[in-house]
């Protein structure tokens, strides 16, 4: 039944790739907002429900991570189905680490049958960072090849082997991730272009704290014509503390957190007794949210930025104040 519905969508709106809410919002030229939900490390449906209640209405779609950082969690597709049933649109993350081309294609067909349309293609964090460091990784395809495969499934109705998908390919809105700051920096816009060629319809970036470097990256990407075919959602994330800011600066590849931001996070707790942990945390988090909102305001002005992707890691409560204060609430409704 769902399959029929999907096919109908495709025929009635040939200009849209998949007709997902995210795609419609972007197609309508609205500034899109996506969030992120990390599925639990068990099969507790309540965790999903709680997180959905914090995001629903404030984001256009929510990424569902796929064993992020190599730690086993509820599957992104399984969690995605729960989320659809709760009335929130998922962006399924799909890593090349855990599946070969057979599993990827069958998972995509299964996901499409459940009405999942947005897929974010990732190579995946290396398993050595996770809780099964001795696992064998797959990497049958890389993220470029995965995007190309999904594009051909959708547009050419064919499996990777070239065989026809009888009954038509799945309607997919294909996404990619981009780290604008990893070395070599000068090649990152080219790589974004390559992802566009491979079949990306939208891109979500790594969290941005260094606005100047991001603007340079976007300038080059726009010049390369990337944004003509791909919607770039700039990644933002509220900082919880100065410690977290320093950790991200020191441990995340390519990430620069300007001193100014670290100083602001430090200043936020100045004058509050170190005994009063609660007050310090509240002040620190409030400042993190403020910085995030300011950044969104700046990002709205950057040419080529079509929306934002908010990564509030295990802090979904922050989404509502950020989206509201950034003037992005209520979310537009784009009816089919």
């Amino acid at each position: 039944m769902t399959q029929q519905l999907a096919t109908e969508n495709k025929t009635t709106e040939s200009e849209l790739k998949a007709g997902s809410n995210l795609e419609r919002i972007l197609a309508a030229g609205q500034f899109a907002v996506t969030g992120e939900i990390g599925p639990p490390k068990n099969f507790d449906v309540e965790v999903i429900h709680r997180k959905v209640s914090l995001l629903k209405g404030y984001v256009d779609a929510a990424n569902i991570t796929d064993n992020q950082t190599g730690i086993v969690r509820m599957s992104s597709i399984g969690a995605g189905i729960l989320i659809i049933n709760q009335g929130l649109e998922p962006v399924i993350q799909l890593t090349c680490r855990d599946r070969n081309r057979l599993a990827m294609q069958s998972d995509i067909l299964g996901a499409a049958a459940h009405g999942i349309k947005n897929v974010l293609c990732l190579s995946g964090d290396h398993q050595s960072f996770g809780n099964h460091p001795g696992a064998k990784n797959v990497h049958d395809l890389d993220s470029m090849q995965l995007m190309r495969m999904l594009q051909e499934m959708r547009d050419k109705n064919q499996f990777q082997c070239g065989e026809e998908i009888a009954g038509g390919g799945p309607p997919l809105f294909i996404g990619a991730a981009a780290n604008p700051f990893a070395d070599p920096v000068e090649l990152r816009p080219l790589r974004l272009k390559k992802k566009a060629i491979a079949g990306a319809n939208f891109v979500q970036t790594q969290i941005i704290y260094d606005m100047d470097r991001f603007k340079q990256y976007m300038k080059k990407s726009v010049d390369l014509g990337v944004t003509e075919t791909v919607s770039v959602l700039a990644g933002v994330g509220p900082l919880k503390s100065a410690g977290m800011a320093r950790y991200m600066r020191d441990n995340v590849p390519g990430m620069t957190v300007p001193d100014e931001i670290i100083e602001r996070m430090e200043d936020a707790v100045q004058g509050i007794s170190s005994e009063d942990k609660k007050a310090r945390m509240a002040a620190s988090r409030a400042e993190g949210i403020r910085i995030c909102i300011e950044q969104i305001e700046q990002l709205k002005e950057v040419e080529g930025v079509a929306g934002i992707h908010i990564m509030a890691i295990e802090w979904e409560e922050a989404i509502k104040p950020i989206v509201t204060s950034a003037g992005l609430y209520p979310r537009p409704v784009c009816d089919s």
């Binding site: 993220s143 470029m144 991730a177 981009a178 780290n179 990893a182 070395d183 790589r191 790594q206 590849p253």
Partner: peptide, 9 residues
């Protein structure tokens, strides 16, 4: 086969 990934330091 189409690298690098985003993890280059």
């Amino acid at each position: 086969m189409n690298g690098p990934c985003g993890g280059t330091d």
